[in-house]
């Protein structure tokens, strides 16, 4: 069974974050609160407070799988958002 999670970007850094059980935000997808599809809209509504206090922008729901205690977003886009670019940057000449 797949679950839902709320993700957003922080206002300050633009960093990818996931909503935690306490209503906070973590950059680790495994910290994110997972809910059923039926509970998803309620979870998303609860992100409004963080939009209002300028912590995050543009929250939305993603679909995730949970296996062995690890969370994995279903879509590749969200997997890449959760882990960062799949390429190495050039950091020195």
């Amino acid at each position: 069974m797949n679950y839902r999670m709320v993700t957003a970007n922080t206002l300050k850094e633009g960093a990818v974050v996931f909503m935690t059980a306490s209503g906070g935000w973590s950059q680790n997808v495994n910290d994110g609160k997972t809910v059923t599809a039926e509970e998803a809209d309620t979870l998303l509504e609860s992100a409004a407070a963080s939009v209002a206090d300028c912590s995050i922008v543009a929250p939305y729901l993603i679909e995730v799988e949970v296996a062995g205690g690890k969370v994995r977003p279903v879509r590749l886009r969200e997997q890449i958002r959760a882990k960062g670019p799949t390429i190495q940057f050039r950091t020195s000449a």
């Binding site: 970007n9 633009g14 960093a15 209002a52 300028c54 886009r77 958002r81 670019p85």
Partner: peptide
């Protein structure tokens, strides 16, 4: 924007006019 006096909807066109996008990670 940082103080919350502008919403993201209000700020977005202003930042875009100055070349600032929100991408996947940043």
């Amino acid at each position: 924007r940082m103080r919350g006096e502008l919403s993201e909807e209000e700020f977005r066109p202003l930042r875009l006019r100055n070349g600032l996008y929100m991408q996947l990670h940043a």
